[in-house]
Design a protein around this nucleic acid. Structure first.
Lengths: 195, 195, 195, 195
DNA sequence: TATGAATGAGCCTTCATTCAT
DNA sequence: GATGAATGAAGGCTCATTCAT
């Protein structure tokens, strides 16, 4: 008797996940071009051929890894409308992002690096475009509550500041005084940036 | 009649430069891994073998490209002590950076992307470390003149904001409203950020 | 209630046929090496595994396809001894062959191509050997009735001419003026070629 | 000092020829799909990579092999206008073709087989198209001298007969009585086929 | 100094075939 | 009888690097 559809789906779900995780880990550690499908298969404990049963190509693999990461980031964003004040909300967003980046340093580094590669040009514009708007939208809402003059642009600047910090952190490693900068930002946004 | 020592050195200097420029151009357009030594040699109008006479390896080539780029950036920074007011100086720094990035978009994208790749990890920390300190130092001086409370951290934040914007611009392409954001920043830093 | 032996056999017969037809269709369209077992299974609406329940290997599959095709050709030959004149019979054979090839162009192309591949060398000699003799025998009989001098050789030449035309048609496609050539042959064999 | 242009060209010419010959030999013996670039390189005594310095792809290799073969065939055709009679010329053409095919049996088998494969469809139509016209043209001229009624079509039939014989010979191997058939044809075309 | 033929390791990908269910 | 997940060998191709000239 063949396996039931459900059994197969479960198997596929699990195997796919194993592959995805191995790929993410290795890409992050050795870079996209530094990681071969062979490496991934070995790490995932499967045969090279099987990887292609789950992903059409190495490039599609990386695409799915991206979607996964983006999704995770969106999911980790704090729910709105359950804060005492917009300040608190802004602080939480900040805190959240810092935590997320700290916890998955290599992955963020990977994400940044991958989407800056010329061969990804078009794809990155498309994927990041949507994603960026969602995140900026969230921050914009907070600034609106704070009655800031140009909330959207203010949100963009805020976002740039955060990503810039992450970037510097990646580029400088432990030399970067991330805690000090973080504290400074908290202080800076304690009072409304501009009325 | 053999060439004089000086002639030989001049030839070497020129050839090396030709190679560096071809490499930079191609890396920027097709990515580091998307560009072969063959491509570079062809573009530079020399033989593959000769390239190895000037650079030990592809990886050393990329290193030298970096130094070149960083140097250029430092050189383009405005001279201090010739401004009427610190505001003006800050504006000029801003303007300068925007201009630089706009003019060499692909190269910056390349620089960012390369230094985020894991294989560059150690090297990037080292090179970027020095460079970062120089730039932040410049900005810090301005903030000091403005009598800002924590000028170094403020400078770090300012720098993060700029690089964050560049990053977003690279990731989003023309979807990113860079002019609007720029204007907002100018306005924001027209008055002292914090006393 | 389990199936009866007869039902099972009927199912097997049908499934096998489905597979054979899918294989034939795909081989003809994409070539033997261009068609995977996966392709065939998908087209036949069965699983890859099941195909191996019916055919030991891809190569055995192709063997059976051949036998099928050869059989079909033999079956389509006109019955002897019901013609008014040998001329009429020869014409009918000609007509029959032209029709057959035209109607199954891709298959003939496949047959020719497959049996010319070195890996088929021995097998093709064996299978085609018998088949050739049957066909030539038929034609020979007609030539005998026509009282031709060397009827067997004449039949061989006649057969070569037909297959040569088919070959040229396959190699040249619509550039080949098949109708004109056909007409010429009809005319040529209207009178006894040689007495 | 680098090699002179002439030296390089000579090297390339020789190496290319070595590869071409190894490829032809192996393709003929084991088929196109049965022969790997590795096989060819090993046989030619070079590295796998070098083969790609000379041929863009396996498929381009086979193309060049074809052109080579076709050229050879055309070159081997007897010069016109130096025969006492058209009969003699026709005989020589016949003789020539028989000799050529006999001498390079495997190659002709390869040629036929390759150009019947669906993946070659378009290319074969194009290449064979020109080639066919040249050959048929030659034969047509002879038939014209013989004052045959429809010389072009008669030439097509003659050509079909020849290729059909070759085909049968390939399909049947030594079972095919090629000498007998040949003799018959000679006899058949001793007198003008049709006035 | 300069050339480009040559190497060889390694990569992505395909696919016939097996086997647990 | 039937399924499709899994295997593993093999193949086409690329490219940094070397070296004879």
């Amino acid at each position: 008797m063949p396996r039931t559809k459900e059994q197969n789906e479960e198997i596929r779900r699990q195997t796919k996940n194993t592959i995805l995780n191995s790929a993410l880990k290795l890409f992050a550690k050795k870079g996209f071009h530094g990681t071969s499908i062979s490496d991934i298969a070995k790490d995932a404990g499967i045969s090279k051929g099987l990887a292609y049963n789950y992903f059409e190509s190495k490039s599609q693999l990386v695409d799915e890894i991206f979607e996964m990461g983006m999704q995770e980031l969106v999911n980790s964003m704090p729910e709105e409308d359950k804060f005492d004040s917009p300040y608190e909300e802004l602080n939480l967003i900040l805190e959240q992002i810092f935590k997320l980046v700290k916890a998955n340093e290599e992955y963020w580094r990977l994400y940044f690096s991958l989407y800056l590669q010329p061969e990804m040009y078009d794809k990155s514009h498309e994927i990041m475009g949507n994603f960026y708007e969602v995140l900026i939208g969230k921050i914009e809402k907070v600034f609106k509550k704070l009655d800031v003059k140009s909330p959207k642009n203010e949100a963009r600047i805020f976002g740039a500041m955060l990503d810039g910090m992450a970037l510097h952190y990646f580029l400088l490693g432990d030399k970067y005084p991330i805690s000090a900068v973080k504290k400074e930002i908290f202080r800076k946004y304690q009072s409304i940036p501009e009325k």
